[in-house]
Simulated scan of single mutants.
Amino acid sequence: MQLTIDLTGRDVLVTGSAHAARQAVRRYEAAGAVVHRLSAPDGADADGPLPERPFLVAAVDDGQPGWEPLLERCRKAGIPVASEPPAGESGHVSLVGGGPGALDLLTMGAVNALRDADVVFYDRLAPYAELAQLTSAEMVDVGKRPGHHKVAQCDIEKLMVDAAMAGKNVVRLKGGDPYVFGRGGEEVSACVQAGIPVRVISGVTSAISVPAAAGIPVTHREVSHMFTVVSGHAPLTEKEHTHLAGLGGTIVVLMGIGTLPQLAAGLRRAGMDPAMPMAVVERGYRPGQRTTIAELGTIETAAAGCTNPAVLVIGEVVRVAEANRNHTEATADLNLLAASLLEA
């Protein structure tokens, strides 16, 4: 159970060793509480005078024996006691997949890593705008935009390694999944070469989730039994166009607006039916999400005003989405008609 309590100006006593409690202290301070510290059960190392009756006791499980009598006295006195997880081992890196940008699509592993972070290096496709709800860590924008790299990749890797070497818990928060066109492998290699412990927390890839946000399944029984994910950052070769056109199934292209004309023309030259349905889903799960649907032969004109971030979907599954949408709209119209007749 999660509760939201206004702690502004409230006395909160955080118990537990300095290392184990450091992130809990930061979280309560970020919530506006007046934080008091007790690092040992005997009270000999209290950090300043303790409040006679704190509003809340945040008990960090630091593994020391002897805390329970103190916490039990607080409970008997009617002072709420909240259990807090200890800070993780310092000096490591977590590569975290942030999904398509929706906070509710973060995994529990991602939420826990963010909670325990000292510093978060994030990019523009990660759900960074709402991270204050999940972490009190230092936030560093290293995002890259088409044609403009805010921080070079080698510099991002150096920032991660340097922060971990300084004893910080580092989260590298990336959009989608770190290993799907996310250069996660390069960042893991940089940590390994520097002797930094590193782990990868998978995220929900936009290759599946963004089409789903538009109602498009990437596979569908008796329509498509496979899908291929392609990077749209650079034009494909004629050989790759031929290979894709011959595979069948669904083609999903990530960040493909810039190369859409070459892709569509290349697939047509490779023999794909110009009547093949195609969708462009812009800003999936974000304000202003928009879906443009056309045929392969006319998509360049239909999508002329589209911009990244966008996911392209090519295949008969687009018709499935259209059929479902038409059925849903027709059902809604019938329900409205029935309601109006009943009222009459």
Rank of each mutant, 00 (worst) to 15 (best):
M1D: 12
Q2F: 14
T4F: 13
T15K: 02
A24K: 05
V25A: 11
R26A: 15
R27F: 09
A31L: 15
A33G: 13
V34E: 03
H36K: 06
R37Q: 10
R37I: 00
L38S: 13
L38D: 13
P41Q: 02
D42C: 03
D47M: 03
D47I: 00
R53H: 14
P54M: 05
F55W: 11
L56E: 09
L56P: 12
A58L: 08
V60D: 06
D61K: 10
D62C: 02
G63P: 03
G63K: 12
G63W: 06
Q64K: 13
P65I: 04
G66S: 02
W67R: 08
L70E: 04
E72S: 08
R73S: 02
A77Y: 03
P80Q: 07
P80F: 05
V81L: 13
A82E: 06
S83Y: 00
G91I: 07
G91F: 11
G91E: 12
V93G: 06
G98P: 13
G99H: 03
G99S: 04
G99W: 06
G101M: 00
G101H: 04
L103F: 01
G109P: 00
V111H: 12
N112Y: 04
A113R: 13
V119F: 08
L125H: 03
Y128M: 11
L131M: 15
L134P: 13
S136M: 02
M139F: 09
V142H: 05
P146F: 06
V151S: 02
V151T: 15
C154L: 09
D155K: 01
D155A: 14
K158A: 15
A163Q: 10
G167F: 06
G167S: 01
K168R: 14
G176W: 04
D177P: 00
Y179E: 00
F181H: 05
G184E: 05
G185K: 09
G185N: 11
G185I: 07
E187I: 00
V188H: 14
S189M: 15
S189Q: 14
S189T: 11
A190F: 04
P197L: 05
V200L: 11
V200P: 12
G203D: 02
A207V: 04
I208G: 00
S209E: 09
S209M: 11
P211K: 12
G215Y: 09
T219M: 14
H220F: 10
V223W: 01
S224Y: 03
S224I: 03
G232C: 07
G232S: 09
G232D: 07
A234W: 00
A234Q: 09
L236C: 05
H243W: 13
G249S: 07
I251D: 06
G256N: 08
G256W: 09
T259P: 05
L260E: 10
Q262P: 00
A264S: 12
A265L: 01
A265H: 01
P274R: 04
A275M: 10
A279N: 02
V280C: 14
Q289C: 12
Q289W: 09
Q289K: 11
A294Y: 06
T301G: 06
A302G: 08
A303K: 01
A304N: 05
P309I: 00
V313G: 04
G315Y: 07
G315M: 08
V317W: 00
A330R: 10
L334K: 10
L336D: 12
A339F: 11
L342N: 08
L342H: 09
A344L: 15
